[in-house]
């Protein structure tokens, strides 16, 4: 780790942009929760689909360039990643790529969530919610 330049890792302007954009995307979600009574599953679906559409239209890319993880960590970023993969897939392998590209790009996240979910079920026990 000694060869890492920590000043580029903790570059404050990048982190600030990421913090603000990521926070604002979550605020949109919070307003949806409080104003529309949508369940959390519907909120997640809305964000992923919005990310796919904005990604497909080429709009979301600008947000990713500007805010980095502030745009890729929210679920809209997951959707963007799927759309980007599908388009890249089409570019490299045509029609088939529309089917393989999206998941290929998001494979790490999906596989990790399933794997850790299974591991968690082996070690953890259901617990009471206190509040």
């Amino acid at each position: 780790m000694s060869n890492i330049d920590w000043s580029t890792v903790f570059e404050w302007s990048t982190l600030l942009k990421c913090f603000i954009v990521g926070g604002l995307i979550c605020v949109i979600g919070q307003i949806l929760i409080d104003k529309t009574k949508l369940t959390s599953a519907r909120i997640l679906v809305t964000f992923v689909t919005a990310g796919v559409i904005l990604g497909g239209l080429g709009i979301y890319k600008y947000l990713v360039d500007f805010a980095g993880a502030g745009a890729t960590v929210p679920l809209t970023g997951f959707g963007y990643n799927l759309a980007k993969g599908a388009i890249e897939g089409v570019k490299t392998s045509g029609f088939l790529g529309a089917f393989t590209g999206g998941i290929k790009n998001a494979a790490g996240g999906i596989a990790a969530a399933i794997f850790f979910g299974y591991i968690a079920s082996l070690i953890a026990k259901p617990k009471m919610k206190k509040q």
Partner: peptide, 18 residues
């Protein structure tokens, strides 16, 4: 549902791009 709608819509995006 996140996977269903995310993946399906990304395939549609790919086909549109094509």
């Amino acid at each position: 549902p996140v996977l269903v709608f995310g993946i399906s819509s990304s395939i549609i995006v790919g086909i549109f791009y094509l």
